[in-house]
Design a protein around this nucleic acid. Structure first.
Lengths: 347, 347
DNA sequence: TCGACGACGTTATACGTAACACGTCACCTC
DNA sequence: GAGGTGACGTGTTACGTATAACGTCGTCGA
């Protein structure tokens, strides 16, 4: 058979187009498009439909998404922005979002902003894809402004709800989580508490601090004897905890903003020759895998990370569909484990 | 100013095209294209170049990547496949790849295959983007075949080098890493060693097992007294280690395939009333953050995770550029910490 | 018997970009 | 001053898809 035209038929390396399918099935390209997108009811006969499908399968046809995006003006692709994937919490958020995206047949482009919370250097140029929307976690305000500047639908996770440009916000109930921790420690008799805080300026950490202070001030005799900040890491928690433990009166409980820091705090306690939890109780936040890897296991706030990502992406899809939604708050629970115990009797 | 044409000038929601830039600058669309892609040397006068750039900035013009991809037939987007991002190792691999991709102005679409190593259910349909190439970590053979079936350039990470369809393979020197562990333990006098192994069928774990056996068999009197498998988690390592510790003679060292499992193994040792490292030495693999969070800190093999991802993406870019490359092997080191010590004297 | 209508398909076009194949000058050389 | 030669741009087209705007038949109600 003599080459009909162009360089079709090359090896098999060139991808077939809808026109190739049309030729093979003996129909027009428009019909192929209708059939393969399931828009054929009442416009194409069942017999033709079958022929087209057979032809498509035979050629191994896959629609060219670039062409489709160009035509439609949308890409079915969203950007997910997280501070850092090496933080297990955000990896889990991403996993939840990715799962929902896959179910909805939406692509996800990931942008881990380099310096945790920080200016995202033009994620749109570097994303390598045109985008329909953005799902952003714990972003700083200026980066947010930059994002929304392009007029893209935006859903924020774990961020201050009031921000205007956001189409929606989804948050775990951080305040309730910290209240659970505080009440737990107060019930155990702790009155001198220190906060081992993350040194990242972020809504989520501000809420934790406020909730801790509020909870303590509600009980006579209870007080925050120290609040030390450090980077979110084992070493950061260790250093901050060492400073906190030098406060007078010495705290009997260390409330940490993150499980990683809590692991460091436990090391700090032992360096002073003290024991966890007999002498000092330690609490974490997030319930990472780490929390059950260390000994004693960490009492910590279990945040629904996967569900946060999933709910965030669902909210984004809703915004894209035109249904605006406000703020969603997800419930959290306290995982009570071995790192907390009754407060020691005052010597 | 009377609307020149079309619905341009709407609010600012519609994105300007290169033709809009051309109109504003008083040149043709082709010139705009040349200027903004820096292909203008010797074809456009510097004065015009400046005008075009000004016009583009003024309109906030961004090229439509879908249109560009359609025209060029490439997308500058690659797929990165990892077993699971919640595994810190792969999160770091991804981070390394993402960094190089950003530098090369290449987009990354991520596909965390659901069940660790497993069949990827058509990542190309679900990726939401047309792809130029694939960077896959620790993939199973059938999934690999499916991937390469589409004829996409493929680079494998941490996988058996021989695989045919791969354009290149990049591996950390797993065998050397396990030899470092074995030699370390042998030097400390350990002769009865147990392997706490991952139950994932994968090249990387097979190599670890072979290297461990080979290293032990080289020293008279040394033997592998147990090899127990379990899932890659704290609980998995704990369970497998408990079984291993019931072997006779009881091992004085537990070699674990992963830091997470090693953390579990430490717990198993203590449950028997034994101490780490005085009674039993424990080693990990990967050098995750976890390794320095537990006490004692884990002696472990430090794998260059970020560099692995970075080298992998560089290899993929090389393959895309037509330069085929074979297998690259990255060096590894041993991080000697508190979880290993001199073997106890035989009772 | 006729017009209308539904079922079935096709033709033609636009999306925004990149790149090829041509102009059109001004200037220079012989 | 004739012809060549760059420098500087423009017109046009194609990429693969989705969809609006048209035919073209049979059938059915009046």
């Amino acid at each position: 058979m003599g080459e009909t035209g162009s360089d079709a038929g090359r090896d098999g390396a060139v991808r077939p187009t809808s026109r190739d399918v049309a030729r093979l099935a003996g129909v027009s390209q428009a019909t192929v498009s209708l059939v393969l997108r399931e828009q054929w009811r009442g416009r194409v006969s069942p017999a033709r439909v079958a022929e087209v499908r057979t032809a498509a399968r035979e050629l191994g046809y896959r629609p060219n998404l670039a062409a489709r995006s160009l035509r439609l003006g949308r890409t079915r692709t969203v950007l997910v922005v997280v501070p850092a994937l090496t933080n297990e919490f955000f990896a889990r958020v991403h996993a939840g979002a990715a799962r929902v995206a896959a179910e909805a047949d939406v692509g996800v482009v990931l942008y881990p902003s380099p310096e945790g919370v920080g200016a995202a250097p033009d994620p749109f140029a570097s994303a390598g894809a045109t985008l329909d929307g953005v799902l952003a976690s714990s972003m700083a305000v200026e980066a947010l402004a930059q994002l929304s500047g392009d007029g893209l639908p935006l859903v924020m996770l774990d961020s201050e709800p009031r921000d205007g440009p956001a189409g929606a916000t989804v948050n775990p109930d951080i305040g309730a989580g910290m209240r659970l921790v505080t009440d737990h420690l107060l019930t155990l008799g702790h009155r001198h508490v220190a906060h081992v805080a993350a040194d990242v300026p972020s809504w989520t950490f501000e809420v934790r601090e406020r909730a801790l202070r509020a909870g303590l001030s509600a009980v006579p005799g209870a007080r925050l004897v120290a609040a030390e900040r450090g980077p979110i890491s084992v070493a950061g928690g260790l250093a901050a905890a060492e400073r906190a433990l030098s406060a007078l009166p010495r705290p009997t409980a260390l409330v940490c903003d993150d499980d990683t820091m809590a692991a460091g705090a436990c090391k700090a306690v032992r360096r002073l020759g003290l024991r966890v939890p007999e002498d000092v109780s330690v609490t974490g936040f997030d319930d990472l895998a780490l929390a059950t890897a260390v000994e004693p296991e960490l009492t910590t706030v279990r945040l629904p990370a996967e569900e946060l990502g999933a709910a965030g992406l669902r909210a984004l899809l809703a915004v894209l569909a035109g249904e605006r939604r406000g703020t969603t708050v997800l419930p959290v629970t306290l995982a009570t484990r071995g790192s907390t115990a009754q407060a020691p009797q005052p010597a």
